[in-house]
């Protein structure tokens, strides 16, 4: 069994899939989204995260075996049973630790635990396929349909991502597209509408619109990094509702928030 690097494991997860879930945040992500609210999960390696008093840093990232993770996940079985919940692998990027992720998901499925992944879709199809085999629900992040813009705000182009989205859609997996709505970055009518259009084409029935929030801001300071969206405000409720209607107009179920 392989080992993986886990940033943290959260119980009573309520924003990443149905019911009450345990969310396993893996560490290491190839993207550098400017709005990322968990920058401590980006770097692929252990790192120190300094507290307010900057005295002793907290080490983020722990190498865990598949069984160790599954043991933690199994603790909340009763909560999954009662709520229709389960496990969600998130990140970081799941596809960057594909083998480890696939093994966790496989073990969970063997225990009849509902499995979900939250992914940027950025990875080789081979890795993605390996993970998808044991995934019941895919929460697929689409940040921008324009590859140049995507490169500008995330550090990578979106070609691989869109390609993976198309392929995954053909497997008839339950899939939800999630769009982080970042004012001035990807919240144009055009981008959202095109994304909904793509969902429709691919037979994906649901889109989640996640409003930008600045809760991750202070983490950047603790990691001694610069936060690029310093003065950005969250989108208004009106704006979010407007975008929701826009998505719905394409015949897609839309939801604000996870």
């Amino acid at each position: 069994m392989s080992e993986g690097l886990v940033a943290r494991i959260e119980s009573y997860g309520v924003y990443d899939g149905p019911g009450i879930r345990t969310v396993v945040f893996l560490k290491g992500c190839p993207l550098r989204c400017q709005w990322c609210s968990s920058p401590e999960t980006q770097h692929r390696g252990q790192e120190y995260y300094y507290g307010e008093d900057s005295s002793k840093g907290e080490l983020v990232g722990r190498y865990m075996s598949v069984e160790e993770v599954v043991e933690v996940v199994k603790q909340d079985m009763t909560f999954y049973n009662q709520s229709g919940g389960g496990v969600t692998l998130s990140g970081g990027e799941v596809l960057s630790q594909a083998k480890f992720s696939a093994e966790i998901l496989k073990r969970c499925q063997e225990e009849y635990i509902h499995t979900a992944i939250e992914t940027s879709g950025y990875g080789s199809w081979g890795n993605f396929k390996q993970v998808l085999e044991f995934t019941d629900l895919v929460l697929f992040d689409i940040k921008h349909l324009d590859s140049n813009k995507h490169l500008e705000v995330t550090g990578v182009e979106n070609t691989w991502i869109i390609d993976n989205l198309r392929r995954a859609a053909q497997l008839n997996k339950e899939m939800i597209i999630r769009i982080p709505v970042i004012p001035g970055v990807n919240d144009s009518k055009e981008n959202i509408s095109q994304t909904a259009q793509l969902a429709q084409e691919l037979g994906i029935k649901e889109v989640h619109l996640l409003a930008y929030h600045s809760l991750g801001r202070e983490k950047y300071a603790r990691l001694d990094r610069e936060y690029l969206l310093e003065n950005l405000e969250s989108p208004s409720d009106e704006k979010m509702n407007y975008l929701k209607k826009l998505v719905e107009s394409k015949g897609i179920k839309a939801q604000i928030g996870g």
Binding site: I20, T78, S83
Partner: peptide, 22 residues
């Protein structure tokens, strides 16, 4: 915020059911 709105309220009710089962 963890009991507000339908989706979170449903989870809260499930939490109570888990409390019973546990």
């Amino acid at each position: 915020e963890l009991v507000a709105g339908e989706r979170q309220f449903d989870r809260f009710v499930s939490f109570i059911k888990a409390f019973i089962n546990l």
